[in-house]
Amino acid sequence: MDLFNKPNAKLPKIKKDAHVDAQIPDGLFLACPYCGAQLYSKQLGEHRVCPTCGYGFRLQAYERVHLMTTAFEEWDADLTLETTDFPGYAEKLSRAKSQTKLKESVLTGQAVIENETVALGIMDSYFMMGSLGTVTGEKITRLFEKATTQQLPVILFTASGGARMQEGINSLMQMAKVSAAVAAHQEAGLPYFVVLTDPTTGGVTASFAMQGDVTLAEPHALVGFAGKRVIEQTIHEKVPKDFQRAETVLENGFIDAVVQRKELPKVLAQLVKFHQPQGGR
């Protein structure tokens, strides 16, 4: 059986959800966070990319679904777990939920990218800085587990400020929990492709973001473990401008390719095809 060419028709077609539109009004004047170019937001185009330097502005998870896939069926949409009653945490969570229309910092599901069926995860930096909470870790773990059962490749778009402080040690444990699911997916001979988006830092970098078979990044995405300020305080010197930027990390040997946002679906589909089992298994 050809496991990689499942019929696509089963998945719902992507339609533009109302809340996906116009996070940034067209007339808004803004500066590129990377190169500083002054731009009208409509100059960014549908892909929200700086026309001067190619930097991809941070996207909400559903915007990314719309740009990258032709069909998407969400998994574990309503997953909730008991979490800590840390002071102020519940309020922070509900604010993040109403601001993003997400229930956690990651969206997972089955998707079709240029005719290739994959298990897809998209982290959202607008949801509590994409921090790694228990539900975030659980959804990504289930993504890998389901992908292993269904023999699907995993594509994960990472974006994270790091640990979810309010959840304390449980946040740290997510790094190991997801890694265990990655290990089982690897052992099943299935491919895992990471796309590092701006910013991918902390515990996410120190676990599943750096465990892929092929690691891509969007132009100028910040990719690192420790924060710039902590590093400068520790070594008593300023770090260079391109420190921890995707191009530097590529140069240092930890990224396979930096890919323009609009090229990503094609590149990802090609990578999936490269990893299709030959002659059945």
Binding site: M210, A226, I235
Partner: peptide, 26 residues
């Protein structure tokens, strides 16, 4: 914690920890 240095970052501090966790689980 892992050392927060420029060289450490350039040499892949995150990747080193990620692989140590993954290897331990195997």
């Amino acid at each position: 914690g892992a050392f927060p240095g420029k060289t450490a970052e350039d040499q892949g501090q995150g990747e080193a920890i990620a692989q140590s966790i993954l290897e331990s689980l195997k």
